[in-house]
Design a protein around this nucleic acid. Sequence first.
RNA 1: GCGGGUGUGGUGGAACGGCAUACACAACGGACUUAAAAUCCGUCGGGGAAACCUUGCGAGUUCGAAUCUCGCCACCCGCACCA
Length: 802
Amino acid sequence: MNYDPKTTELKWQKIWEDDRAFEASCDHSKKKYYPLIEFPYPSGSGLHVGHPRSNTALDIIARKRRMEGYNVLYPIGWDAFGLPTENYAIKTGIHPKKVTEQNINRFRAQLKRLGFSFDWSREVNTSDPAYYKWTQWIFLKLFERGLAYKAEIPINFCISCKVGLANEEVVDGVCERCGSEVIRKVKSQWMLKITEYAQRLIDDLDNVDFIEKVKVQQRNWIGRSEGAEVDFKIFNSDLAIRVYTTRPDTMFGATYMVIAPEHPILNKLQDSILNMAEVEAYRQEAAKMSDFERSELVKEKTGIELKGVKAVNPATGMPIPVWVSNYVLMGYGTGAIMAVPGHDERDWEFAKKFNLPIVEVVKGGDVLQAAFVDTASGMMVNSGFLDGMDVKEAIPAMIDWLEGKGIGKRKVNFKLRDWVFSRQRYWGEPIPLIHCEKCGWVPVPESELPLELPDISDFMPSDDGSSPLARAEDWVKTVCPKCGGAATRETDTMPNWAGSSWYFLRYTDPHNQNELASKEALDYWMPVDWYNGGMEHTTLHLLYSRFWHKFLYDIGVVSTPEPYMKRTSHGMILGENSEKMSKSRGNVINPDDFVDELGADSFRLYEMFIGAFDQPIPWSTQGARGCRRFLDRVWRLREMLTGEKGIRPDMMSEVHGTIKKVSEDYERMKFNTAIAAMMSLVNAFYNKGDVTADELHTLLVLLYPVAPHIAEEMNELIKNPVPLYRTPWPTWDESALVKSLIELGVQVNGKVRGRIEVSSGLDNKSIEEAALGCEEVLPYIEGKTVKKVIIARNIVNIVISG
RNA sequence: GCGGGUGUGGUGGAACGGCAUACACAACGGACUUAAAAUCCGUCGGGGAAACCUUGCGAGUUCGAAUCUCGCCACCCGCACCA
C-alpha cells in the first residue's frame, strides 16, 4: 500500500478532533505552556505560505510540550477588522461582515487542512461584538485614566478618494489605492498616551527573552535621549524660546537659533518681525508640503531669518539671530534648537549656506572645513568656565550652572509619539464615547457595552473625510448618559491594532461574559511563554500590545508587567526568483495546490527544512518534492521491519544521537538540522537494510511534531496501541552516544594529513604514538623535529619545525 | 547617514576555535523496465599526474580560523534633518 496523504491526513485530523486531543485543560494544577502565533488577518486572498512557517514552528513546540506533560494552550483566532475588507466592500457592495465571514471560513478550512494542533474551541474574532465589548471596555478604562485624549493633528488625506488614510496606506507619499497625491489635513483625533509608558517599555525589555534584533528595534523606535531644556531670552522682550539639546556643553558655540515653521512663538513675535510677509510665505510653503516632500528636500536646506529679532545666548550673553527652517521639526523636543555649527553637521551645512559664524568649542577637528562631531570626549575651548574640561565633565557642569541660574533643567526626550487611535472608517470598533454640549465627552455606560456597529449599506467615506458612520443619523443621535440632554456619538472607529492589542488575554477564557477573562485563567496562563511573529510588527503590534498590557497591569487586571516571556521571529518566504512574493510579480505559491499534490506533512516538513528559520528564504518547489520523497522513504521502512525487539546495539549510538539532536534543535528553532538528522537516521536504516519496530517507533515520535499525520498512521500500522499524541517525548542516554572506536584527524602544522582510528578511552600518550605512526603522516614528519603534539576532542595536531 | 543582518559548491544550506562543504535540490552514470515515470545503488567545490588551491577582499591572534580581532567591499531589512 502506498502512502496516500489525502485519506491519511483527514483520518487523523478527525481522530484528534473527536478526541479533543489539543484542547487546553481547565485543570490548573498541571504545569502550563502557552505558545502563541500572531492571529491572521483573514484577507480575501487566503492563506499565504508565510503563515504556516510560523504556525508549524510553534506547532512543533506545542506538540512536543504536550508530550512532555504540559497543559498546552495553542490558540487561534481572527484579526478581523481592517481596511482591505472594507475597501472590498466599497467595491462590491457586500457587507464587510459577510466578507469577513467568508474569508474566515476559507482560512479556517486551510489551516485545518495543514493539521495544526490549535485549540479550536477557543477561537476568537475581533469583529465579534462579544469580543469587541472588551476592546471598548479597555478603551474606556484608558479614557478614565486620562490616557485617551482628543487632539488636533494632521492626518493623511487622499485628494482623489477623499478619504483619510492610515499611515500604512500611504506608500511613497501617494495613495496606495489610486496613486494620487496625499496631503495633510488637520483633524481632531483620539490619541493614546503611549509616551507615558516610554521609559517602562524600554526598561522592561531587560526582563524578557526577546531576540536581540527586536529589542534593538524597539529601543531605537522609542528613541530615548538625555539632555537639557534651556530658555533663550528674546532680546528686548519678555519672551523666550525654549530649546532641547543633548549637548548643553557646546552652548558657547551656539551662534544662532532655528525654530520650526509651525512654532507658535512666530505669532507672538509678529509685530517685531520686520520681514513677516516673507516669513509667512515660507511658513505656508512648508505647511503645503507633505512629510514625504519635506524629507525629500533633505539635501538642500532652506530657511529664513527673522529680521528685527535676536535671541540671547545664555552662556555667552551675546545676541544671536533666529531663523525659521523646516529642518527643525515641531514634533520633537520643543520645536526649536540652538544651532552649534562647529559640532553638528546639519547646523554646519546651514551656517555655510547662510554665512553664519562657526565657533570651535571642542578641540580635535577643523570646524572651518567640516563639523567636528566625533566628540564623545574631548577638551572644551572658547567656552568660558568650561575651558579645559573634558566633554564628559562639561555636560553635567553646564546643566548644574543652568539649573543654578533657573534657565534650564535636565530633560529626557523620546522619539516615540502618542498613538493616533481614530480612523474615519466603518469596519472597526466604534469608539464608545458620546459628545454632549454641556458635559463634553462622556463614556457610554459599561452596561451598554458592546456599542455595536450600526448596520449600514454605504461604506464610502464622506467628502469631508468624516467616517461613514456620521451618516447613520439615527445611531449618531443619542442622549447624554450624564445629563440626559441631546448628544451625539463619536463616529470614528478604532484602528485594527486595537483588537490585536489584547487578544492573547481573551484566549485564556474566551467565552467569559462578565470579564475580559477571569483572574484565575489569566493568572494561570499568562504570560505567553513563546510568541513568534513577523519583524514587521516589532514597532506596531508588539509595542502597542506591551503598552496595553502594562496599563492593564497598572489597573490590576493582569498580574504580570509583560505579556510575552519570549519573542522570536521567522524570516520571510520569498518567491522562486528570490523576490518578495506578490500578485503583481506573479510568484505567489498557493498552499492549497501544494497540499493537493504532495500533502500537508510534506508542506510542513519543507517549510521547516527550507533553511534557517530566522532568515528570509526563496521557495523551491523542487526542493519541496524532495521532502515528499523523504516521507515516502520513511513510509517504506515498514517493509524493512525485522522481527527483532528493542534498539540493536550497533544502532544505539545513531538512534540516541538523533533523539538528542532533534530534541535540542527543536528548542533552538534549528528545524532544518533536526530534519537533516532524521534523514541521516533513515539513510542509516537503508544502509543497514532493515529496522526494528522500536527503532522505527523512535523515529516516528521524533518526526511527529513536524509531520504528524504520516507519523501517526505508521505508528498505528506497526501495531502500536498508543497514538503518538499520547506518547511521552523520548529521552536519550548519554552513555549510548559513546562509540567504542573513534576516528581522529591527524594534522601536521594545522593541515589534515591523515586519520587514525582509536578506542575511545585511549590515553593521550598512546594516541600520540598512533598519530606519529600514521602512514599518511610519516612523509610530512620524516627528518623534522616534532615540537609538540596537541590532542583535542577529535583532532590531533603535530607541530613540527623547519 | 545611523542601527541590525547576511556573504560557504550549479542551488537551498551544515559545521561547541578542531577532519569545510553534513542534509537536501539539480546534474551525471548504473540497476530494474519493451520504454518512461517511480524506486534502488553510485559520482558530484576547483585543479589536476601529483603538488596544491578554496568559506566576499586584506591583515592579525592561535599549534589550528568559515568561526575571534581590526580594516575594507557587496547585498538585504529597519529608521532617517530626532537637535
